[in-house]
Amino acid sequence: MQIGAVLKVDGLSYIYPSGKAVFEDISFEVGENEFVSIVGPSGIGKSTLLRVISYLIPPTRGKVILLGEEIKAPSSRIALIHQSIATFPWMTALENVRIVVDGKVKDRSKANEIARKMLEVVGLRGAEDLYPKEMSGGMRQRVAIARALAANPIVLLMDEPFAHLDELTAEGLRQEIYYILFNPETTLKAVILVSHNLDEVLELSDRVLVMNGSPARVVNDLSINIPRPRQPRDPRFNEYLDKIYSSLTPIR
């Protein structure tokens, strides 16, 4: 394991019950404070890979090691943010976040305090008592992120978190997300993002893993060496974009 590696994915394979192999022998490591993105053609198994990493789906072969310890059950230390923005409609923003704290913190006021702090981290101070119906998609996704952060995760898995937001909202959240996630108030040490949006991936990531083939494998592991904040007009941005495109095509 490399120095500072937080998460190690070691030879992961997943085969559907029907017998179809989705991906095979996926191995990579994610270091401390590293933002890694996974890209690949539609249907290649990126979202499934995130679920296998979080053990929501047990792998057919291989293992996931978090801080030197093998993951054998779903754990809030590896938290998943859904593409579809899932918040409980009958709970306020505060309750939506507090639900993951309640069992771990006996004192209700302490749980409230943690939930409030995480809502503040994601920029939702003052929106604690709003119900999801009263919030925009962007605000709801911030609630989902606050919920994940309140659970004290080590790794955050984000499955196309901006896909259902309009472009302006998505861009606003994108600009903030890196600093929200690696805020000193959180326990987070690494992020893995799955996305189809290559601009988004280049804007946010320290590394990009490209999946391709059937069954899918990691065909490229690219470090993005552009200082932040990144601008799509930067010529290096386009160079990286070309490299990713060349790994993605042809779709195998």
């Binding site: 679920r51 979080s54 929501l56 779903p74 754990s75 809030s76 590896i78 938290a79 998943l80 859904h82 579809s84 899932a86 409980f88 639900i99 993951v100 309640d102 069992g103 919920r147 659970a151």
Partner: peptide, 18 residues
Amino acid sequence: VPNEFWEIMRNYELGYFK
């Protein structure tokens, strides 16, 4: 119940009665 919610319940290790 949407699959997302089942995943949240498992992911955050919520107890049976919770």
